[in-house]
Each structure stands twice: as C-alpha cells, then as structure tokens.
Amino acid sequence: MRALIIYESVFGNTHTVAEAIAEGLRTAGEATLVPAADAEGSLLASVDVDLLIIGGPTHGHGLPALYTRKPEPRTAASAYGLPQAAPGASEESDLRSVLDALPVGSHVEPQGIAVKHQVAAAAFDTRRSGPVLFTGRTSRAIAKRLRQRGYASAARPASFLVDGQDQLLAGEIDRAVQWGKSLAAHGS
C-alpha cells in the first residue's frame, strides 16, 4: 500500500499528528508526508497512491483561510504566549489550494460508463477540545471536498484535540498512530 499524507500545520500539532498517522500506516506499506505548501501542481497531477490523507488545523470553525490567519501566526503566537509557529507556516491557506488542485479521484472510461479505479481518501484535523458546535471541525470540510472530487472514503473524518495552550492532549499521538494502523488495515 502506498499512502500520501498532505497536511497544513501552524503550531506544529497537525505535523506531529501527520507523522504519527504515517507511523501507523507504515505497518502495511509506504507513507509519504508532504506539507501543503510543498504540494505543487506536478505532485498533485501525478498522485499515484492507494490512499490519500489530508489534514489541517481548524480555524474559525473550518478550513484555514487568509482572514483566520490575521494577525500573522508568528506574531499571534508570541503576543498570546502560545507556541511559536512551526517552520514553514505561512499566512496563506495552502490547504485550500491543495484541495482545489487535486486531480479527480476516480478514473472513468472515456464514454463515462465505468469507474476503473477509485482512490481512497481520509481527512483529519487538529482542533480545540470541546463540543464541535463551539470548536468547528476542518476534517468534515476536507472530507466533503474529497468526495466532490471523486475520492472514496476510507474512514470517517478524525479530530485530534489540543488544549487551550495549543498543545496536543495526552494520548492523541498514540490515537493518531492507531488511526493510521486502522487506515492501513482498510487499504490492505
């Protein structure tokens, strides 16, 4: 099984979760991690994997956007005593660009008759601990966009929780490894 994990991370939590998911996936094959900022059109056009996983932080109840990143992440982190932004974090929402540039997940015969192969996909996010009504959940928006692009759902969207200081809660990294293993089992 070949898996590709594309993620966006501001404070490093989503990156940490993506690495843990990859660890779980590697029990059944290869897993490559790519930050959304590095997911260029050529990479996306040549997506040749069995499983595509996309994840990002929850901002303003959903996908990160330019307006949810003001003030700029590094300034916001230091101003509120929060962790510094992760290396490569940018003001712009790379995740939205990636989702818009994804190739269609199923390959259809020229006459539009039959699906030859449908790529499986899964979505995850990092978000504050609390009811979804109050925190939002980026993974649902990612999963919806993946379905619209023709990807088959490999699992329900997953959320990995952070506390009020933007630190992953105890046990979330282990839970991410287990989620990766469950995805690997689905793909086998």
Rank of each mutant, 00 (worst) to 15 (best):
R96L: 11
R2Y: 08
A114T: 14
A37G: 08
P131Q: 15
V132Y: 11
Q148Y: 03
V34A: 09
A28S: 15
A86G: 04
P73N: 01
S78Q: 08
L43E: 04
Q178W: 09
E172H: 10
S78N: 06
P131D: 14
L82A: 02
Q178L: 11
T126P: 02
P103R: 09
L146S: 08
V47L: 15
H117L: 05
G150S: 04
A184N: 07
V98D: 01
L168I: 07
S46Q: 14
N13W: 03
Q111P: 11
E19M: 15
A85N: 06
L82T: 00
E8Q: 06
R69W: 02
E30T: 13
V10R: 02
G105F: 03
A39G: 10
K144T: 14
R137P: 06
P103D: 04
S90M: 05
D100L: 08
G171D: 07
L169R: 10
S182P: 04
I54C: 02
A36S: 07
I5N: 13
I173Y: 01
D100I: 04
E92Q: 11
V98M: 01
I113R: 14
S182Q: 14
G164S: 07
P131S: 15
V104Y: 07
H15C: 13
S97Y: 15
V34W: 11
V49M: 13
E72T: 07
A184W: 05
D163K: 00
A158G: 08
S159F: 01
P110V: 11
E91V: 03
V132N: 05
A122F: 02
G150A: 13
D48I: 07
H186S: 08
G55E: 11
M1F: 12
G41R: 08
I113W: 08
V177T: 13
I6N: 08
D163M: 03
R127N: 06
H59S: 06
K144C: 05
K116N: 12
E109H: 09
G29Q: 04
T14N: 02
A20P: 09
Q118P: 06
D174W: 01
G164P: 05
I6L: 05
Q84V: 13
H186A: 14
S9L: 03
I5M: 09
A185F: 11
L169Q: 10
T16V: 08
L146A: 09
V108L: 09
R127Q: 05
G180D: 15
G164Q: 04
D50F: 13
F124P: 10
V119E: 09
S139T: 13
K181L: 10
S188I: 09
E91K: 02
A122N: 03
T126L: 04
I21M: 08
G164A: 00
A28V: 02
V115P: 08
L63V: 01
A121F: 05
K181F: 06
A37Q: 13
R137S: 15
